[in-house]
Write a protein that binds this DNA or RNA. Structure first.
Lengths: 213, 213
DNA sequence: CTCCCCGACTGATCTGGATCAATCTTAGAG
DNA sequence: CTCTAAGATTGATCCAGATCAGTCGGGGAG
């Protein structure tokens, strides 16, 4: 069995940095910032369990959630020598890290990460279409479909994000996201059991709104 | 020397597909669609020379240019088994293709593509911030800085894109892009020698507008 | 149980960029 | 050279979503 290092909530403040564990698994509480945009990029990381988000900030505080990550997704990337994004857990999460040098030494790792990068790059392409060309209602429909796998039919989706976080992901304001949820409910496409518990009732209409995504 | 297969303009219609050349180099004229979103994904491609753009379409015709590519950049990606984007040359270009299976067999190739994917993924993260949170003027400033490398000081940048293509890249309309160019000119940050020939006069102000990018 | 507080919702108003509608400019054709 | 057509610019108006301003609701502390 693989080693799992448990880190309790209290041992990480919201802005703590991750200790330099090599190859080990690391359990992190929800709402912890694991990486900071602009810090020196030493390691590449993978989500093993849980959900995370990558964010970028403008100098004046405007924020964009650039990517949502689930198990298998890779983060800690850098175009130059510093991290391009901050990374924050949405739920309790387990992550692994790899030395950047290991990419050349370990072909199996490189091959696996390559495949994952391809998936994530395609997801970013879709997201560019969402951010650049879709209306508010379409964006929220797209968001919900993306989070709700086909398989789950009657099930309810638990949102681990606030309206503000969803807004920062979709390039909207929290008020607009809230109105979009209400409008989808009014049209009978979704049901809101609680603010963070959504049920998709009319998948076809949702798909049509989201551009057959 | 590597083999270069020259393809003349006339031999490709705007919507022709690329013949199945393995590992060879292929010269393609400007404004040729090399890949079509939704086609079966057989090969992974690399830009050797020239500039290209990747686009995605919504069913109703809205278009997003999701990525701009230069030498070294990779395209022809697929999340499932079909291409996620169409790929079109902006200038005359030289491209290579690799069999998708070669990624496992050739660690050097995998390692090189991995590095490039990382760069492109970071570029997409920046672009998400641009599309989600920046004003029209900021977007255009960011776009021009990105295209104009630091080194070139007094030089002029030749835009290989129409206002419509720039608009589709930045999530705006062509009118708004045109107005942004005029505003940057009015403020003295750029000079427009011709519609497609730009000079950056005040790099610092541009950088401030673009969010210190 | 009540109280408190944070997040969600909703209404009223404002505005940046979209849309609609002419020109203007400039390669390229003849 | 002139003529033409495609792209760029500019102006007028409109509207989706931002902003501002409360109110609502539900889960945790006491």
């Amino acid at each position: 069995m693989r080693q799992i290092i448990e880190e309790r909530t209290g041992s990480y403040s919201r802005h703590a940095s991750v200790p330099d564990m090599h190859g080990a698994y690391l359990r992190v509480a929800a709402h912890v910032t694991v990486l900071h945009e602009g810090d020196t990029a030493r390691r590449i990381m993978e989500v093993v369990e849980g959900a995370m988000m990558l964010t970028k900030l403008l100098p004046d505080g405007r924020r964009q959630v650039v990517e949502l990550l689930g198990p298998g997704d890779v983060f800690g990337l850098a175009a130059c020598d510093v991290y391009a994004c901050s990374a924050e857990t949405l739920t309790t999460a387990v992550i692994t890290t790899h030395d950047r040098g290991a990419l050349d030494r370990d072909p199996a790792l490189a091959s696996r990460l390559l495949r994952r990068f391809e998936t994530q790059l395609c997801a970013m392409h879709s997201h560019a279409l969402v951010l650049g060309r879709m209306s508010a209602l379409e964006r929220v429909a797209f968001f919900l479909l993306r989070l709700m796998p086909e398989s789950v039919v009657g099930g309810t989706l638990h949102l681990a994000m606030t309206r503000q976080e969803i807004a920062d992901f979709l390039g909207l304001t929290l008020e607009t996201v809230s109105r979009a949820f209400s409008e989808l409910k009014r049209r009978g496409l979704v049901a809101l059991l609680r603010a963070d518990e959504v049920q998709i009732n009319d998948r076809n209409s949702m798909r049509r709104l989201a551009g057959a995504a």
